[in-house]
Design a binder for these strands. Sequence first.
DNA 1: TCAAGTATACTTGTATACAAGTATTATATC
DNA 2: GATATAATACTTGTATACAAGTATACTTGA
Lengths: 243, 243
Amino acid sequence: MDETKEHLYPIKWLTKASAGDRVASELRMRIISGKIESGTILSENKLAADFAVSRSPVREALKTLAAENIIRLERMGAVVIGLTEKEIEEIYDVRLLIETFVFERLAQMNVNVLVNELSKILEMMKVAIKYQDADEFSYQDVLFHETIIRAIDHSYMLMIWNNLKPVMESFILLSMRVRIKEKYEDFTRIIKNHELYIEAIKTKDRTLMIKSLHKNFDDVQGKVEDLWRSQQLLVKGEEQEND
Amino acid sequence: MDETKEHLYPIKWLTKASAGDRVASELRMRIISGKIESGTILSENKLAADFAVSRSPVREALKTLAAENIIRLERMGAVVIGLTEKEIEEIYDVRLLIETFVFERLAQMNVNVLVNELSKILEMMKVAIKYQDADEFSYQDVLFHETIIRAIDHSYMLMIWNNLKPVMESFILLSMRVRIKEKYEDFTRIIKNHELYIEAIKTKDRTLMIKSLHKNFDDVQGKVEDLWRSQQLLVKGEEQEND
DNA sequence: TCAAGTATACTTGTATACAAGTATTATATC
DNA sequence: GATATAATACTTGTATACAAGTATACTTGA
């Protein structure tokens, strides 16, 4: 139906991905951006036609998105759930929960290697900002938190992260793309928060860690609504162009 | 290959399930029981032949089990991870984490309906014990905790639970089947713990809740190894019968 | 105009077919 | 005997085909 593929998801992140992954990534972005509205019923056949693939990868994608809680598989069609304010808060509940847990473990570990790794990622983030590369920045931002989680070698915490990651990634991606143009100064604050986070890990200062974690959330959460809306408008605009 | 289907997973729980779900459930039980050993490489074709279905439902099942972290999908074949002592501890870390979170929310809610629901489930558990029905007991036990989690209406906590549940269920199922024969007295203790749990929710007593939660874990965890071993022996025995 | 029943066009779940790629084994060459 | 190369038997990912079931629309009857 919609022949013009906008590719909301960065194409170069999909170099080695299967058709199923590609469909999932793109669909996820469209749902989270609001391009596909909450409540919409997705049909395997229509999606297959839209993405010019067979039903097999589409089914795979739908199963993935259902596990991520952004669609709901019903007897007839997949219903889009999407991300409302409530869901975003819930995601941050989970992040707060796991990252707090992770921190407790880190407090009993040697964190030299980790801190070094995080510093590197932070430098990357700075470079990304310098060149106004929102996608690269988002990638490094997500990687930052994943690196922390991976450090404690806890397969079930990682499992939770893996379920959360794609949605987080999409959300951050969309958010950063808007912000890097409109609210450039936000990024200095984000960087500062991450520096605080690293400091907290290095000094094993629990209160500092919680503080920087919450700051990070406030930073995102407070601005969620309007940013998200502007993104919606932006995408809707594109949509009209195509018709 | 192995034509004799042992049906480790209760068949009557699969009445309306798809072939994919059936394969996933049975495979999960075989992996967690140790019948399929950790490290084994599963082939889609072999599994399809084993379960007398096509590759489609098998692929679906493997994707599910990979999301549950008991197998790992690699370029060539799916590698069985299984449940070692480490994984079981990790699962309980997660349970402790989410149930603690849930409790905090419950403390700010009206819990009358929930407590009533839990009491009902507890009665069911008692009946199951009375008739030595390990499967029914396990079902109600899992339902008990799911009911608590559902009560706070938090879709992402539920998401975590949904990822954990099948593995938990299988593990409890196998564990209870052995215990109901060998260690009947365990069950009075389990019931008592659950009563404590309900009491904690009713009175919103955090310390009591944590205590009963930990007791529950100690109860399971301490006995995990030998129970699990005996289960392995039991299954291995069955295996030899077939050859 | 409305009700009931039938036909039609969709839906999912599963089986099968095929292509592209990878490991393994066998064969040929030194 | 060791090494390089070719043949084979596997692997996954995707497309397509089909069956069983469900909603929609249409027709028929009052």
